[in-house]
Amino acid sequence: MTAFFISTWSVKDRAKFDEYVAKAEASLIPHGGERLLWGRMESVLAGEIDYDECVVVQFPDLEALNAWHESEAYQRIIPIRRDAVRVTVAAYSTK
């Protein structure tokens, strides 16, 4: 079943964020990750939101998503992400 990595964030340090994004994008390739959406929130239609941007990355399955997330390449850049953004990340799979 297809799996999706969904992250929502507000940027704290744009330079560090740009560094993180470049490295994160490269780390997706070996695991079949494909960015489907990277967008900026335009309006809140219902509820409360405490972030400005989001990304949706599709993986062939949950195993590929988890392998990417636990990979040395991705784990190495998480400290950059911590300094760059206030973030929430989640994994979803199709039914």
Rank of each mutant, 00 (worst) to 15 (best):
W68S: 06
T2V: 09
Y74H: 14
A3V: 02
Y92G: 02
Q75D: 05
D18K: 08
V85M: 08
T88M: 06
V44F: 12
R35L: 15
A64C: 13
V44N: 10
D52H: 08
F4P: 00
A64I: 01
S7M: 14
R81W: 05
T94S: 12
R82I: 08
G39H: 09
V89T: 14
W68I: 05
A46W: 02
S93I: 03
A46G: 03
H69L: 09
S27F: 10
S71Y: 08
E70C: 10
W38A: 15
E53T: 06
P30Y: 07
S27T: 05
V85T: 15
D52R: 06
H69S: 12
A26T: 11
D13P: 04
G47P: 01
I80K: 01
E63V: 13
V55I: 14
E72R: 05
L62P: 01
A67T: 09
T8K: 10
H31M: 05
D61G: 05
D61K: 05
W68D: 02
S7H: 01
V87S: 13
Y92V: 06
A91T: 09
V56A: 08
F5H: 09
E72M: 07
Y92Q: 04
F5Y: 15
D18V: 07
V55W: 00
E70D: 15
R76E: 15
F59A: 04
V21Y: 03
F4S: 02
I6N: 09
Y92A: 12
G32F: 00
I29P: 01
L36Q: 12
S10F: 04
A26W: 13
A15W: 03
L45W: 09
S10G: 07
D52T: 15
T8D: 02
A64T: 04
G39L: 04
W38M: 15
P79L: 13
I77W: 03
F5A: 04
R14Y: 08
M41F: 10
